[in-house]
């Protein structure tokens, strides 16, 4: 059974543990500005929302890449950027309609969530259960993904 991240904004307190954990896992340093999961703040309402890649089936980023640098991890279903192939053209960053592939000027390449190979640090670090990593069909994630994809004309009818 494939697992996916379940994000529940209602439980998020904005503590940013996930951003710290992600950046530490990926960079070996605490640098939330380069975290691959981001917590967005809604000041007016005092609310927070963690957000990252939904690992779409028919991933726009993967299809647009000119050099086949984004591939699927067969074990986790994650779409993974292969740094040795990425030329940093950024076409994936404009192609992803969810805004979850970002260019990193320091490396000249792009970065996106890869589910940490199947054991995501963000989920482990979240103290409130706002981020969990559970069976895909329990997360409502598919529903969320389906909703997002349905709203996009270029997504129609996955092959």
């Amino acid at each position: 059974m494939q697992k996916s991240l379940h994000l529940d904004p209602a439980k998020c307190t904005g503590c940013l543990q996930c951003e710290l954990a992600c950046s530490y896992e990926k960079l070996g340093e605490f640098n939330p500005s380069r975290s691959l999961i981001r917590v967005f703040t809604f000041h007016f309402e005092g609310r927070f929302a963690p957000y990252t890649c939904t690992q779409c089936d028919e991933a726009w980023c993967q299809r647009a890449c000119p050099v086949d640098a984004i591939t699927m991890d067969l074990a986790t279903g994650a779409k993974v950027v292969n740094d040795d192939k990425c030329v940093g053209c950024k076409v994936c960053t404009i192609s992803c309609p969810f805004g979850t592939v970002n260019y990193v000027q320091e490396t000249g390449k792009v970065a996106k969530c890869d589910l940490c190979g199947g054991d995501p640090e963000c989920a482990k670090s979240c103290p409130t259960g706002a981020i969990t990593f559970i069976d895909a069909n329990l997360t409502g994630y598919e529903r969320m993904q389906a909703y997002a994809e349905k709203s996009l004309p270029s997504a129609e009818a996955s092959a």
């Binding site: 992803c96 309609p97 805004g99 592939v101 260019y103």
Partner: peptide
């Protein structure tokens, strides 16, 4: 450079 693709998403949807 951050979250730029969401502009495509908002326009297309």
């Amino acid at each position: 450079t951050q979250h730029i693709g969401v502009i495509r998403g908002l326009i297309e949807s």
